[in-house]
Amino acid sequence: MNIFRLAGDMTHLASVLVLLLKIHTIKSCAGVSLKTQELYALVFACRYLDIFTNFVSLYNTVMKLIFLGSSFSIVWYMRYHKVVRRSYDKDQDTFRHYFLVLPCLVLALLINEKFTFKEVMWTFSLYLEAVAILPQLVLLQRTRNIDNLTGQYVFLLGAYRGLYILNWIYRYFTEPHFVHWITWISGLVQTLLYADFFYYYYQSWKNNQKLHLPA
């Protein structure tokens, strides 16, 4: 494992922990999209179908369990916790799941490395992860005033994507035959979706202001 991959995993982990911390300690999920969180839970559930059958390393297994556990507990908090669920901006978070899930499923059935159930589910999870942030970005645009923790959450997720691209570049040059178009293209699309957010995040950081997104 190279330093970019490790740093990417750590920022991914940090993003989830920031979100759980916000929800657990402040008992608020204001500005957080339940749609995005449900999509991430679906992404991890589909991607880690091999969690008990394909052992890569203890690190991988533990991280998979953390991502599965944290994504489902965030969804649980937002849906069922008697205090947290009241802070959920239901009327603003109107993005429809199936607009993202169905095209990703069709694409995974058409474009995959091998037409088996596990492989198609794995490919579907990659496509879905690429666009799962969209409901969150739409919600940020609508509410515009973003608290620090929500801003940091999206920033850390974007950093994780950027670091994974560096990891692929590194692996391409250091490992023979490391060519994975599906992973790369969906990863690149995902990272590009953050570009706009990053621009405003940088501006607010530079001017030492609270993050405001334009309408």
């Binding site: 394909n54 890569v56 794995w122 994974y164 035959h177």
Partner: peptide, 10 residues
């Protein structure tokens, strides 16, 4: 080799 597959990533 499995180690080179992207499935060793998260």
């Amino acid at each position: 080799c499995y180690k080179e597959s992207p499935k060793d990533e998260l």
